[in-house]
Amino acid sequence: MTPETERTQREDYTAFQILYDGGFRRRAEELLRAADLGVSGVEVEQAPSQRPMVRLLHEGGVSTPLWAGQPSRGGPAPGSC
């Protein structure tokens, strides 16, 4: 068993928590800011019948998809390198 086995489910759970649980969202944003990656927040887009899309908001207004609702291929998340 590898960490990738349930990655899609973990990504979806995290996206829904960010979307619907204000406390979880605040803690996630605080963690990302503390990591000093230039991330100022997160946003989640939920389209009907699709997986949620999570974007990292960067200082200066730029946003980067964290995962774009696509099935995992086992590589690093976009923007993580």
Results as ranks from 00 to 15, higher is better:
residue 14 T to C: 15
residue 37 L to N: 04
residue 35 A to N: 07
residue 50 Q to V: 02
residue 10 R to G: 08
residue 12 D to I: 13
residue 31 L to C: 05
residue 45 E to Y: 02
residue 25 R to Q: 14
residue 41 G to M: 05
residue 18 I to Q: 10
residue 48 P to G: 10
residue 16 F to R: 14
residue 24 F to H: 15
residue 4 E to V: 06
residue 6 E to H: 03
residue 26 R to C: 04
residue 53 M to A: 05
residue 20 Y to I: 14
residue 55 R to E: 04
residue 17 Q to H: 12
residue 48 P to T: 13
residue 5 T to I: 07
residue 22 G to Q: 14
residue 20 Y to E: 15
residue 6 E to C: 01
residue 49 S to R: 09
residue 23 G to W: 02
residue 25 R to H: 11
residue 50 Q to S: 10
residue 44 V to H: 10
residue 50 Q to K: 07
residue 19 L to E: 15
residue 39 V to M: 04
residue 2 T to N: 12
residue 32 L to R: 00
residue 15 A to T: 12
residue 7 R to K: 08
residue 53 M to R: 11
residue 12 D to T: 13
residue 41 G to P: 09
residue 43 E to C: 10
residue 54 V to I: 08
residue 21 D to I: 11
residue 28 A to F: 09
residue 36 D to P: 02
residue 31 L to S: 08
residue 42 V to Q: 00
residue 5 T to E: 09
residue 43 E to H: 07
residue 18 I to S: 13
residue 44 V to K: 07
residue 22 G to R: 12
residue 4 E to R: 11
residue 51 R to C: 02
residue 31 L to V: 06
residue 9 Q to V: 10
residue 49 S to P: 00
residue 30 E to V: 04
residue 42 V to E: 00
residue 4 E to K: 09
residue 38 G to D: 05
residue 39 V to S: 03
residue 53 M to P: 00
residue 22 G to H: 08
residue 54 V to R: 02
residue 34 A to L: 01
residue 19 L to A: 15
residue 24 F to W: 10
residue 49 S to T: 09
residue 7 R to L: 07
residue 16 F to G: 11
residue 16 F to D: 14
residue 39 V to F: 00
residue 40 S to P: 04
residue 32 L to V: 02
residue 34 A to Y: 00
residue 43 E to A: 13
residue 54 V to P: 00
residue 26 R to G: 13
residue 5 T to C: 04
residue 53 M to Y: 00
residue 23 G to C: 12
residue 43 E to N: 13
residue 3 P to E: 08
residue 37 L to H: 10
residue 2 T to M: 03
residue 28 A to R: 02
residue 22 G to M: 10
residue 51 R to G: 02
residue 36 D to A: 08
residue 55 R to A: 06
residue 49 S to I: 08
residue 29 E to R: 01
residue 5 T to Q: 11
residue 18 I to T: 15
residue 39 V to N: 03
residue 14 T to H: 14
residue 55 R to N: 10
residue 48 P to Q: 12
residue 40 S to K: 06
residue 36 D to M: 05
residue 36 D to R: 08
residue 30 E to C: 04
residue 29 E to G: 07
residue 23 G to H: 13
residue 34 A to D: 10
residue 44 V to D: 07
residue 55 R to Y: 03
residue 15 A to Y: 05
residue 27 R to Q: 12
residue 26 R to T: 15
residue 18 I to P: 11
residue 19 L to P: 07
residue 6 E to M: 07
residue 28 A to M: 11
residue 20 Y to L: 15
residue 5 T to A: 07
residue 27 R to I: 06
residue 28 A to N: 06
residue 33 R to Y: 03
residue 51 R to S: 01
residue 34 A to N: 10
residue 29 E to W: 00
residue 48 P to V: 11
residue 25 R to Y: 05
residue 27 R to A: 14
residue 40 S to A: 09
residue 35 A to I: 03
residue 12 D to Y: 06
residue 30 E to L: 05
residue 17 Q to P: 12
residue 19 L to Y: 14
residue 52 P to Q: 02
residue 23 G to M: 13
residue 38 G to P: 05
residue 50 Q to F: 03
residue 53 M to G: 00
residue 26 R to D: 14
residue 28 A to I: 03
residue 53 M to S: 02
residue 45 E to L: 06
residue 24 F to E: 15
residue 32 L to E: 02
residue 5 T to N: 10
residue 14 T to F: 13
residue 35 A to V: 03
residue 42 V to L: 13
residue 41 G to L: 09
